[in-house]
Write a protein that binds this DNA or RNA. Structure first.
Lengths: 208, 208
DNA sequence: ATTACTAGCCGTCGAGTAC
DNA sequence: TGTACTCGACGGCTAGTAA
């Protein structure tokens, strides 16, 4: 089938039927030549992935059954890869986390975006890396903007609203990290360690 | 980046970390040569999509941050393409549908798989083609097997459990069609036309 | 403006093979 | 068994251009 997947996705993003576009527009969007787009669209039409009416003024494209099925199959595959349980287990790690000081610097934004001011200390929880990646992928990330003071720069954070043993909390990941580590840092309005009576190595339940 | 997407997805299907495999196995699965897999894996490692430890006994692959982010981005894109509202509108079409006779032939399976015996007549509803495709994609399809009698063959059906104005029903699509048309056929335990007091061109709400 | 052909360049593929 | 190199062949890419 050649490499028509990227083009098919690009088209689908514009709609599934009656897409008005041109080979030149598409070539710019996909950073390739007008000729390549033209050739690929002809191919895709021969493969019955799409149907077109093209003129010297541009073209109108419809994604056909076969094309939609192909995209759907891909969607399902990725869905399965990232699908996770609704909750995962983790073990409390020692230390209150060095995060306490940093947490205090983002309070206004936490209040605004997460709906609570955070207790100045993070709960460190050890999880299974694969599980935490999948778990997090299905949650909408909340971005906390970075800022600069006279002294130094505080980077952006990505937060995921979760519950720790049913207590509303949030996983906090520095944006430069970009991805969850095995050990995650959790904040909450309460002192989770006290409220939930947690000790090192105790297992907790992290849910959506 | 070349065409490494397919290979990355194949790897991800095996897991995100500590994937034990070999270039030969992968080449068979992806119907390409061992050499191509080897070259692509080297490329992907250079691009920091994966990390590997390879020996003469095979290899262990870990998908790295960049690779996971790349897959996630793709997943989100497809998700947006197929994401739909939880309900769509449709307009009642004239005619009871020729489906009445056929419906009666599948009753046992309807009872078993859908949980009801169907009123022998289908409700034809005109919808927006694009919306119905997206709506249906998020519902788990239920397959009704085809069968052959002395006289003729009855093909397989794909059903999607839905509600029409809150009344439990199912969209029925002959499998050979494979995809929703603009006009869909709906069955229910009740005579929907009577129960819901529907007339031609009246708008109905189709929900999950 | 467009689409899509032809021609020639260039990159990707895989057989052969070393380790 | 393995991985991964070299290198010839083949196919995809884009410049030029017709319509």
């Amino acid at each position: 089938m050649g490499e028509n997947y990227t083009l098919l996705v690009k088209l689908a993003q514009k709609g599934l039927s009656n897409i008005e576009t041109s080979t030149i527009k598409l070539s710019k969007e996909l950073k390739t030549s007008q000729q390549t787009i033209s050739r690929k669209l002809v191919e895709m039409e021969n493969n019955e992935l799409i149907k077109r009416t093209s003129s010297t003024k541009g073209m109108v494209i419809n994604i056909e059954e076969k094309g939609i099925t192909y995209l759907k199959k891909n969607y399902q595959t990725l869905k399965e890869i990232f699908q996770s349980k609704d909750s995962i287990k983790g073990k409390i790690q020692s230390g209150i986390g060095e995060g306490g000081y940093y947490v205090s610097k983002y309070q206004e934004q936490f209040q605004k975006q997460l709906g609570f001011k955070a207790f100045p200390g993070t709960l460190n929880v050890k999880t299974n890396k694969e599980e935490i990646i999948k778990f997090i992928t299905t949650i909408t990330p909340i971005e906390i903007n970075g800022f600069t003071t006279k002294e130094r720069t505080f980077g952006s954070l990505i937060c995921y609203k979760i519950k720790v043993n049913k207590q509303p909390s949030a996983i906090v990941i520095p944006e430069r990290t970009r991805h969850a580590k095995e050990i995650i840092e959790i904040i909450s309005s309460k002192n989770l360690r006290k409220t939930l009576k947690l000790k090192d190595n105790v297992e907790v339940n992290i849910s959506k």
